[in-house]
């Protein structure tokens, strides 16, 4: 029987660990970016560009983009396998969940491509 064909790492324990590592990365990134905006009221374009365009921030942003993709995949997978199942959806559950995950994958693919292009053109 297929147990975890659509989880990110095909292992619950690895997904569990990945979810926590990416959570810490994203938590730190959020605190940094929101923190910068809070301590820089009325931020100018030059300040914003200098901040986001610095080498360190571009690397950090790249890490955060990849972490977002992993974290969101595991999170959306969890929602999907919790709620889109036979109990609620009957015999169409597997098809419905497959379509749902296809949409998730598509959105994340667009997100990653767009975000990486954005940060590295700066």
């Amino acid at each position: 029987m297929v147990k975890s064909a659509t989880s990110l790492t095909r292992s619950g324990l690895s997904d569990f660990l990945l979810q926590r590592v990416t959570a810490i990365v994203l938590g730190l990134y959020t605190v940094c970016v929101v923190g910068f905006l809070v301590v820089t009221p009325g931020v100018s374009y030059e300040q914003w560009l200098a901040y986001q365009g610095s080498g360190a921030m571009r690397l950090f942003s790249t890490l955060a983009v990849l972490a977002t993709a992993g974290h969101a995949w595991v999170g959306m997978w969890t929602i999907g396998t919790d709620y889109i199942r036979g109990h609620y959806f009957g015999r169409q559950a597997t098809l419905a969940r497959g379509l749902y995950q296809l949409v998730c994958a598509g959105v994340l693919f667009i997100f990653v491509g767009w975000a990486l292009e954005l940060f590295w053109r700066l």
Partner: peptide, 11 residues
């Protein structure tokens, strides 16, 4: 995607 759109625009 909304946040990314705003970020893209702002940069």
């Amino acid at each position: 995607l909304f946040a990314l759109y705003a970020l893209d625009l702002s940069l």
